[in-house]
Amino acid sequence: MSFLTPAAEGLRGLGRASLFLLTILATIPGALLRPRLIVQQIYSVGNLSLIIIIISGSFIGMVLALQGYRTLVNFGAASSLGVLVALSIVRELGPVVTGLLFAGRAGTALAAEIGLMKATDQLAGMEMMAVDPIKRVIAPRFIAGLIAMPLLVSIFSMMAIGVAGGHAIGVELLGVDDGSYWSQINQAMHGGDICDMLIKASVFGLAISWIAVYQGYHAAPTSEGVSRATTSTVVVSSLAILALDFVLTAFMFR
């Protein structure tokens, strides 16, 4: 009996999380009527993640360009540098790295904020004021996460491929022709790749926001409970991102 308990607990957690997601989804139409609250949350999960996303995107693009150039130049294919950077970023690194950073930056903040609101009776207080905390507190944060992730992934990819990342190193520093950098990318990729990137970004955004608000809302109302909620937000969403990435890539591979 006792060896079944962890498995049963895991199942129960998954069930609770799923029901919680359904509850959130049911309140979304109502929450959309208060765009102001959503705008506020987009600021805290989106704008405040912007710097880390821009900087990481640039560095990852630069590293990819340096590494890729060394290999490609041996085959006289340095002009394919753009393809290498763009393919790696758009198909994999953009959504995955942004997702991991988003979980660390915005997911933990969400979980901690909601957990603390619970620990200090703010959520219970709202409920006693006949205000549904799921609709008023959880849903706007969830929606904001959903909106912010695809935008952040696009910004990350743009920085990594174009503005300051691969382009800066490949074209400005290593002297790859600007035209062939872009035209090679153009030929190797098409609109579907961008669509796939946005799909991945949205799925990751849903997973991270869901995990973060669930962990926060179901945190034990103590300081230890809140710290545990933030930790498991990072751990669970990182694992979820990597696993989902595999599943989605397998689907898109066809």
Binding site: M117, T120, D121, Q122, A124, G125, M128
Partner: peptide, 10 residues
Amino acid sequence: LLFQSGALLT
């Protein structure tokens, strides 16, 4: 309901 902690929205 007046909570012991006040439960003000911080």
